[in-house]
């Protein structure tokens, strides 16, 4: 029971409390580059999710066999293998999306989020916890990519996952599918998350002082 609770906690940590994008502000390169539509965000998110999960499992399994002097090289080899698998699979199965994402699929290797989780979590925790962590962080990253892509697609072309939302007379916000739109949307979302955090802290503080009085 306690174990279940802990694993769930790790998952929620990645998805929300320590969201890799909105709280840790990691992995912004692919985030800003490919989120000009929700579907691209989804594809990128799933690809990263798969790489993160697979690498976490392997690193966690072999953590005691990997000497710490060569751990980074080993992590990179493991990550790169999964990325290559994703790259070829996408090129074969979904050539259109593969073309859209272009160089950013191979660049998942360099995503600091993934190497960061290997170093900070998977190489120090049990398989079970690492899987929970990878699920949480991967889902958090996916959530960020899709929500950013959705906002930009809705405003930028008036569609969501390619389905027109506003009819023919929609005036697209061209900037939203251009790079500045990515920065503006991300900025507004970070603003929102910081505001939530601040509000939560205020409430916690209030609760703490009330407790103190009692």
């Amino acid at each position: 029971m306690a174990k279940e609770q802990l694993a769930y906690d790790e998952f929620m940590k990645g998805l929300w409390r320590e969201n890799p994008v909105f709280v840790q502000v990691l992995g912004l390169c692919p985030l800003l580059a490919v989120t000009n539509s929700a579907i691209n965000g989804l594809a990128m998110g799933l690809a990263s999710f798969f790489v993160l999960l697979g690498s976490s499992i392997l690193v966690s399994l072999f953590k005691s066999y990997i000497p710490k002097q060569v751990r980074i090289s080993c992590f990179i080899i493991i990550i790169a293998t999964f990325v290559t698998v994703v790259d070829y699979t996408l090129a074969a199965a979904l050539p259109v999306i593969h073309k859209e994402l272009g160089a950013f699929i191979p660049l998942i290797v360099a995503n600091c989020l993934i190497l960061g989780r290997m170093e900070a979590f998977a190489s120090r925790n049990t398989l079970r916890m690492s899987v929970a962590d990878a699920f949480g962080m991967g889902a958090g990253f996916l959530f960020a990519l899709v929500s950013l892509g959705a906002v930009r697609e809705i405003l930028g072309v008036g569609e969501l996952f390619g389905i027109a939302l506003f009819g023919a007379n929609f005036e697209p916000w061209v900037i939203m599918i251009l790079p500045p739109g990515g920065f503006i949307t991300l900025g507004v979302m970070l603003l929102y998350f910081n505001w939530l955090e601040e509000k939560k802290n205020k409430i916690d503080k209030q609760l703490a002082t009330e407790d103190g009085v009692n």
Binding site: S73, I78, T81
Partner: peptide, 12 residues
């Protein structure tokens, strides 16, 4: 060290 990296590289 070399062995570990070699095995990792080989499998990869």
């Amino acid at each position: 060290l070399i062995g570990t990296l070699a095995i990792a590289g080989l499998v990869s």
